[in-house]
Design a protein around this nucleic acid. Structure first.
Length: 829
DNA sequence: AGCACGCCGACT
DNA sequence: GTCGGCGTGCTC
């Protein structure tokens, strides 16, 4: 019987992104199954390459020459059948490669390295010393260098280690042909099974002393010390011992060689702990919370249930609902995944879960080291972690019996990946929940418009919580018309009412949060005489002014430039910063309230590790009166003593050139306002704006989600935006502007050609090619073509885009341009 | 992509 | 005839 395997090979090019057929060797026929990781020879040089078995077939379906699989790399398959199904689904949905998808679900801590090595050919190695010297004389400079390198490396060297020789590969090839050297591939399969080493004595105390005496063993003073220590403390961790006694590895290996100690390796789980502290309160659930819990738990074992959308206002105690559902699942033997938008911003949520459930709570996010990720995965597989809290990547954790997926604040943009595959965690979770009957809960106070539309379409089960857990009303939002303030001669960023309220709050010993959606000091610096604006040299972006260092900084690539006293264009000295950032807010606030203690939370003050936790802790412990911050403030923070929230410029986001900017404005106002009055004290919100009449603002100040939804959905429908259409963005970027432009046009023309062939002659659903709104980032020019699946079947459209951008990539695009496909992108800049 | 092969010109 | 350099085409 013959068997063949269709597999995906790990190589980092889209040109090999298909299934390759290999023959299954006889000794593996009974062994090999779908999902196995195998080693195959790949390419002309038969480089040992890692591959993944997707299918096993009995006969070749076409006449192709095949190579044989060398071996399986792991005892058990690393992927389940459903994992591979997910890979296929994602590849189709997001138009990305197999490997992109595999990398997401690939168990952490595995890595196959392959490298080419050089050794001396036996005929040379066996020469006598005299003959060898003679032989060396026949070689040229580079060849001698290679021989010397091999010898000085104990007879074997990796090709990549041979430096400062040009065209090493052709040199080595020729030397191999002349039988001077051997050239071959080697590989090493790393499995990062982090173990910890425990030391103990091989025999008990007296026995050991006799053994030493009888065998006349001499011990150094350090070794004696270690033995003495081990007599009293058996089974100690090697690192602790070395540190405690200031011992070296040498003395330990020496003891081991003398047969006096044993070393034992055991699994070790690193535990990335957050330093954030939270207090555990006994919570009494209200009726709405209880209803939600009952609804979800009662259907947990039902098949074909819909995902739940938990629409609960800010402060409605959604986390309590999550925890009760998880608790129920645990008791039924089911595991849970909780996704949070940004792990760094949710130390509070994590500590609440840890307080409630203890050690079975694991944390997973992209900032963990590979080793830490591996440990978490291992603990999950071992059943030591039953609840995983993490960022979107936590979705792919290898739980054995996953029962619940919770996505908190599911309107957050961070659930859409920026990297390939540009997946949406919401979509993947929905896919998983339907396929495996998992209870999926999407929680938010401000559900995305397109998702809420699906409630109306019966795709979700809507559960609402309309009251705050503390039974207090939502904070009243007072709108201040900044045009009026200006007319009354108040040029400050702070309206008079806001100043008064801040004063009042500080007097009452409660805390204030001020929100502004822009960091830095000023949004741009320009010359009043000629209008020159300081711009980033790498991007098409004006520099944000940072006062402390007197620099302009690009918030896209990090480029910094000192701002000169004179205009580089006209030489005038009228150089001034315009617009307002959080840094300037802080400065002005200090002059108005010189005694207030102020904290600032934005990307500039929280980039250092641990600094965010420090700021949150300080504010929580009421070591500051006012917290100024950007977007970060909107993400589920919970401070009991905050009674006043100030939104300094609500229209800043309104004027963003994106079809989601109204929705974002509504969300931000609702979310930021929700930070006030979360405990016993009532909250208040002051909202400053120049545009008091905009529906996003009017609906937000009345907490009228339904109203905003009905306004917004009409606009979405009229313009054919999501949820009525999918949007596909293709961005072509590269260092050469002309090439990028020409490639974009190439692509457009190819697409038009294919569409015409299919009888489609109306191309209104294609926008562009145009330069992106941000036409240059990091020295890369960017052009965009936008597609809506208006009047065209999405799979046909995707098929054509895939054909042009992937299958025929080398025909349509230059090698040095980057083509990025994003299905339903967060923003089209 | 990245690897191997093969062609070509320069130089002994 | 040999060496280094670079362009080309394929990967079961």
């Amino acid at each position: 019987m013959e068997k063949y395997a269709k597999l995906v090979v790990r190589s980092n090019t889209i040109y090999t992104d298909n299934l390759f057929t290999y023959k299954v060797p006889d000794f593996l026929i009974n062994e090999l199954s779908i999902g196995h990781r195998v080693l195959v020879p790949f390419g002309r040089g038969n480089k040992p390459t890692e591959a993944f078995v997707f299918e096993i077939i009995d006969n070749l379906d076409e006449d192709i020459k095949t190579k044989e699989i060398v071996d399986v790399l792991d005892e058990k398959p690393i992927f389940r059948v459903e994992d591979l199904e997910l890979v296929n689904w994602m590849k189709n949905r997001y138009l990305c490669t197999y490997i992109d998808c595999i990398n997401l679900i690939y168990p952490k801590g595995y890595k196959l390295n392959n490298y080419k090595v050089v050794t001396l050919n036996e005929s040379i190695d066996n020469l006598s010393e005299h003959k060898f010297k003679e032989f060396l004389l026949t070689l040229n400079e580079n060849q001698t260098k290679v021989i010397e390198l091999i010898i000085s490396n104990k007879g074997k060297i990796k090709v990549e280690k041979i430096k400062d020789i040009q065209n090493v590969n052709s040199l080595l090839d020729r030397m191999a042909k002349k039988q001077i050297i051997n050239l071959y591939w080697e590989y090493k399969d790393h499995k990062n099974e982090k173990k910890i080493c425990y030391i103990s004595l091989t025999m008990d105390s007296d026995e050991l002393d006799d053994y030493i005496k009888d065998n006349k063993i001499n011990l150094g003073s350090k070794q004696k010390e270690i033995v003495k220590f081990l007599k009293n403390n058996n089974n100690i961790e090697i690192n602790d011992l070395m540190e405690l006694l200031n011992a070296s590895k040498k003395s330990i290996t020496s003891l081991y060689d003398k047969n006096l100690i044993t070393l034992k390796l055991e699994d070790y789980y690193r535990n990335p702990n957050s330093i954030y502290k939270s207090s555990y309160k006994d919570i009494i659930l209200n009726n709405e919370q209880q209803y939600a819990i009952n609804k979800i738990t009662s259907q947990m074992f039902e098949e074909n249930k819909k995902p739940y959308m938990l629409h609960g206002i800010t402060g409605s105690g959604k986390t309590e609902v999550y925890m009760e559902v998880i608790d129920y699942a645990l008791k039924q033997g089911l595991d849970s995944i909780v996704l949070v938008p940004e792990i760094a911003l949710t130390p509070q949520t994590i500590s609440r879960f840890k307080n409630r459930f203890g050690d079975i709570v694991g944390v997973f996010h992209s900032q963990l080291s590979e080793g830490q990720k591996h440990d978490v995965y291992k603990a999950i597989k071992a059943g030591k972690i039953r609840i995983l809290v993490g960022a979107r990547s936590a979705l792919f954790a290898p739980f054995n019996s996953l029962g619940v997926i919770i996505i908190d604040e599911f309107h957050e943009t961070s659930y859409k990946s920026e990297k390939n595959p540009k997946f949406s965690a919401i979509e993947i979770a929905k896919y998983m929940s339907i396929k495996n009957d998992i209870s999926l809960i999407l929680g938010s106070a401000t559900p995305p418009i397109d998702e809420y539309y699906k409630v109306k379409n019966n795709e979700y089960e809507l559960i609402e919580i309309k009251n705050r857990a503390n039974n207090k009303p939502l904070p009243k939002i007072k709108v201040i018309d900044m045009k009026g303030q200006l007319n009354n001669g108040n040029k400050s960023i702070f309206s008079i009412p806001l100043q008064n309220e801040i004063q009042e709050a500080i007097k009452n010993k409660s805390q204030v949060i001020l929100f502004l959606n822009r960091r830095g000091y000023a949004s741009f610096v320009s010359c009043r005489a000629c209008g020159y604006v300081f711009q980033c040299e790498n991007c098409d972006i004006s520099l944000t002014y940072h006062k402390g260092k007197n620099i302009g900084r690009c918030h896209y690539c990090g480029y910094e430039k000192e701002i000169p006293k004179e205009c580089p264009d006209c030489g005038s000295k009228y150089i001034k910063p315009f617009g307002v950032g959080t840094q300037k807010i802080e400065e002005e606030l200090k002059t108005i309230f010189p005694d207030a203690k102020i904290l600032r939370m934005d990307k500039d003050t929280t980039s250092k590790k641990g600094s965010l936790e420090e700021i949150l802790n300080k504010f929580k412990n009421e070591e500051a009166d006012i917290l100024i911050g950007t977007q970060m403030l909107s993400k589920g923070l919970d401070f009991e003593n905050v009674t006043l929230v100030g939104i300094l410029s609500a229209d800043m986001m309104l004027n963003f050139p994106d079809f989601k900017s109204f929705e974002n404005t509504f969300q931000l106002i609702t979310q930021v306002s929700g930070r006030a009055g979360r405990s016993d004290k009532e909250g208040k919100v002051i909202l400053q704006t120049y545009d008091t009449d905009h529906y996003a603002i009017r609906r937000a100040i009345n907490y009228d989600y339904e109203g905003f939804y009905s306004d917004e959905i009409k606009i979405r429908k009229a313009f054919g935006y999501s949820p009525f259409n999918n949007m596909i963005s293709v961005v072509i970027s590269g260092e050469n502007e002309k090439v990028v432009k020409q490639n974009s046009e190439n692509m457009y023309n190819s697409i038009i050609y294919l569409l015409k062939n299919r009888g489609i002659n109306d191309f209104e659903f294609i926008l562009g090619p145009n330069p992106c709104s941000i036409a240059k980032i990091n020295q890369n020019y960017r052009w965009q073509i936008l597609f809506k699946d208006d009047n065209i079947e999405i799979n046909l459209l995707k098929g054509i885009i895939k054909y042009i951008c992937i299958t025929k990539r080398d025909v349509v695009f230059n090698k040095d341009v980057n083509v990025s496909i994003d299905i339903n992108p967060n923003s089209v800049l």
